[in-house]
Amino acid sequence: MLFTLNGKITEVSAPSMKRLLDVLREDCGLTGTKEGCGEGECGACTVLVDGLPINSCLVPFGQVQNADVKTIEGLIGHTDLQKAFVSECGAQCGICTPGMILMAAPLVERAQAEGRIPALAEVQETLAGNLCRCTGYVAIYRAIQTACGAKSEQASVISGENG
């Protein structure tokens, strides 16, 4: 079956009912996409399909035929976001991080284009389906605001005002 994976047209033969998550990890060797719950509850498995974040643990491989799939390995152009996760300590154990970054990527892209910093409530709503058991979230929210151009101190002020 043909699909676009991180910008490259890719052919993989795997059962159409195999989870996209497993195809990415096992057949494509891209282990950046993580499994937490396997039930749509945690967001660790988030990837972009045609630009939209979805849970790859709930998508049968057959569903992405001819689609454009992007995983954390293919997220070039979002180095701002990735750098901000590093500078703001948005990752600890790192299991949730690829999902967090892919979930936030479209928001960051939109906000950067519009030249604005998303408010805390908007960041929280975007990440409502992504669980993190390490960071307590604040550093993650700060990383996303920083990636949109907030100064680190300013980002914490933005969280302070809203939260």
Binding site: G40, I54, N55, M103, T126
Partner: peptide
């Protein structure tokens, strides 16, 4: 309903 990633599908 549900989470943003689920709503997309």
């Amino acid at each position: 309903a549900a989470s943003p990633a689920i709503r997309n599908a």
